[in-house]
Amino acid sequence: MWDLLARSLGASTIFLFAALGELVNQRSGVLNVGLEGLMLFGGTAAFITAQTTGSYPLGFLAGLTIGGLLGLAHGFFSITLRGDQVVSGMGLWILSFGLTTYLGSAYTGPLGLARIPSLMGLSPFFLVGVALVAITWLLIFRTSLGLAIRSAGENPAAAEASGISVVAIRYLCVTVGGVLAGLSGATYTLSYNPVWNYNFLMGWGFVSLALVFFSMWNPWILLAGASLFGIMWQLSLSPELVLPGVLSRYVWRTVPFAITIPILVVISTPWFRTRWGLAKPEALGRPYAKG
């Protein structure tokens, strides 16, 4: 049972990193639906680098760098060019899907390095994830920078009039979001499941995206949601462990989405908004034109 839980939390970590990055992104008003693509690219870069150099740190560095660069690219399209954020995000995903399949096909197979040690079966990255949740919460709700980020996502005109550079804040956030997506992908290919195959994620990025909405943009709820989604996902991989033969893995795999949809419906109701305040960043997905 502990093994299953530990393994689940390993999966949760992947969701957590990516979703935390996306949360910071969205708090500043930028939606990146290409999260899956950033993770694929970051994970592949990390895998190839670690395999050729034999070094985990270099592998992670490559993953983080590629994630950050793709985040910047999304920023360029959505902030500087003020393009449609959904189109840019989908473009990044499709591009990453194709390029990683092409670049990585020669590396198909196991990583072939000694596994990163675990703590009684628990991935050490999960603890890093919990620490990052605490740091993100502090950053967003307890610092001046966090106030600036939230303002850029709620009402960029107000932020600009207060002397805050919305462009700089949003670039910062998309880059941080990209780095965390890269970290998520690298953690997948170097620690969680160190075997490369084309399109190895098969939807993890989209679950992470759903998780951000599930969390109502709060890092602590995000942590709880990531843990829950991790367990659901793990069950989908090995449904025979619980209730063998009752439900197919594909049913388990839809559960995170099935939970997220009613939550999205509830938080959009006027009742929720008047009772609990405005959850969704008001300017999410809207390009900001100065002046």
């Binding site: 307890r142 610092t143 001046s144 966090g146 106030l147 600036a148 939230r150 303002s151 709620e154 009402n155 005109a157 107000a158 932020a159 600009e160 009039a161 207060s162 002397g163 805050i164 305040g277 405005l278 008001e282």
Partner: peptide
């Protein structure tokens, strides 16, 4: 037209962007 963040408190709006409020709020 008002340049305030509707979802924030009055105080948060007032300190937003103020140079004295660096680092932790």
């Amino acid at each position: 037209t008002r340049r305030l963040v509707a979802a924030h408190t009055v105080l948060e709006n007032i300190v937003l962007g103020h140079p004295r409020v660096r680092g932790f709020l």
